[in-house]
Nucleic acid binder design. Structure first.
Length: 434
RNA sequence: CGGGGCGUGGCGCAGCCUGGUAGCGCAUCUGCUUUGGGAGCAGAGGGCCGGAGGUUCGAAUCCUCUCGCCCCGACCA
């Protein structure tokens, strides 16, 4: 992408409405613009980040055997009456009516809809278990939206739903999600710790929330240092093996981790390597049995012809919230520091002297090497402006091309995370990045 | 939803109390100079002061209503 032809409107000054770092930086780096309270337009760079995160979530869901589908944002009130939640959900649900006066709603979640789809088509125990998910916009009419995208009203969420024949099966599905989630957060470049959680308005008795450690997080968290050393990206766990999953699950949940609401001083005192910090909830998984399948009449035939009511679980990841959460975890005074896995561009190529034949040629060569996926700062601005914007936007790598080195094919390569700069040939620089 | 605050060129703000033809910084455009960490000089464009009523010879300014946004609290992926 050529910056001179991109809608990436960076801001030099802090917008008055943004209070926390991630909100300020998302506006200043030109990732989003608010269009109404708690509702944001995702501009090109922000949209890239959002898609990068969604793709990692997607890959890890698929890897443990889940199926992706896409359900609509608008749902019929009728479905929610069947589960009893139409009245129970309250003012957080955005209710609409079409021209015929039929009652609709903008979905805050999809348990009813997927239970409905399943009851239409799944008839036999032979067809279970299954876990389905989609990545779709949700709307919850928060009383007070705040913190930018972290607490918006419209948000992008991955929500998954498992269907099993019994409790034992549901536990296996639940553990698969635990595995997928640990991998997701590790790939996103953040420490996310599973903490035992309340099940909230949806109900159930097996529930974990995933908390990203970030200095500006909303809740105080206490955890065992053992979580810092865990590595879940290795293919050490066979998700097809219940025994392996059980071992993994035990491993992940055996150490102490709690938010301040669930904090237990007595147990905490036993932890040898204590860590305290702030955290942001970015995921939540829970088992809730037949809470929806039963009232909605979802049944399958068992071996003996009996009717089995499947046990369900729900698994959410706040995809758009993660954009803010990642920035909370990765920024400094100058701007965002993107993890490589989600950065909108792997690198920015900074042309310090647009119009200089040597600089232009070397920049074009670098740009081509990325197949156009890098960002080329070809604006006719001063060096300082470009450096400041590059730091603000947080590209993992900066390839700085100036007239001094361009004559000899040399560039300066800067690593945003460390600030380390080295002079080398373009070929060597590309070799380090690609 | 309770309490507080703010709406004035794209962004950040002053002006309002004490009515009199709308101002500053940044950004934008033109020219010249400058050129490796947010340049200098000169000039230019851009705002029915959130909206609607009212008071007044005259309203950004005073009064009433309304809409929007932000902050603190109770609630949430």
């Amino acid at each position: 992408m050529r910056l001179s032809r991109s809608l990436i409107p960076t801001l030099k000054e802090n917008p008055a409405e943004a209070q926390i770092a991630s909100h300020r930086l998302m506006l200043r780096a030109g990732l989003v613009r608010q269009t109404a309270s708690g509702i944001y337009a995702w501009l090109p760079a922000g949209w890239r980040v959002l898609q990068n995160i969604a793709n990692i979530v997607r890959e890890e869901q698929d890897r443990v055997g889940c199926q992706e589908l896409l359900m609509p944002t608008i749902q019929s009130a009728e479905l929610w009456r069947q589960s009893g939640r139409y009245d129970a959900y309250g003012a957080e649900m955005l209710r609409l009516a079409d021209r015929h006066g039929r009652e609709l709603l903008y979905g805050p979640t999809n348990e009813e809809m997927l239970a409905d789809l399943m009851r239409q088509s799944v008839k036999s125990y032979r067809e279970l278990p299954q876990t389905l998910y989609h990545i779709q916009w949700k709307f919850r009419d928060e009383m007070r939206p705040r913190f930018g995208v972290m607490r918006g009203r419209e948000f992008l969420m991955k929500d998954g739903y498992s269907f099993d024949l019994d409790y034992e099966g549901a536990v296996v599905s639940y553990r698969k999600q635990m595995l997928a989630y640990m991998r997701i957060f590790q790939r996103l470049g953040v420490k996310a710790i599973p903490m035992v959680a309340d099940t909230g308005p949806i109900g159930g008795d097996l529930s974990h929330e995933f908390i990203i450690l970030a200095p500006t997080g909303e809740s105080q968290v206490f955890y065992d240092a053992a979580y810092e050393a865990m590595d879940f990206t290795k293919e050490a766990v066979d998700h097809e093996s219940p025994a392996d999953l059980e071992r993994f699950f035990g491993e992940v949940t055996k150490n102490y981790a709690a938010t301040d609401e669930k904090h237990d001083e007595a147990v905490w005192a036993q932890v040898s390597e204590q860590r305290e910090g702030r955290g942001i909830e970015v995921g939540h998984i829970f088992y809730f049995g037949t809470k929806y399948s039963a009232p909605m009449g979802l049944t399958v035939a068992g071996k003996d012809g009996s009717q089995i009511v499947p046990h369900m679980g729900s698994y959410g990841v706040g995809v758009s919230r993660l954009v803010g959460a990642l920035i909370e975890a990765h920024h400094d005074e100058a701007g965002i520091i993107w993890p490589d896995s989600v950065a909108p561009f792997p690198a920015v190529i900074v042309n310090l002297k647009v119009g200089d034949a040597g600089c232009d040629a070397l920049c074009n060569e670098a740009y081509a090497a990325f197949g156009g996926r890098a960002l080329l700062d070809d604006r006719e601005d001063r060096a300082g402006v470009k450096f400041a914007d590059a730091d603000l936007m947080g590209h993992p790598w900066q390839i700085v091309v100036g007239p001094r080195g361009a004559a000899n094919g040399m560039v300066e390569l800067k690593r945003r995370a460390t600030g380390e700069k080295v002079e080398l040939s373009l070929a060597d620089a590309l070799a380090k990045i690609l």
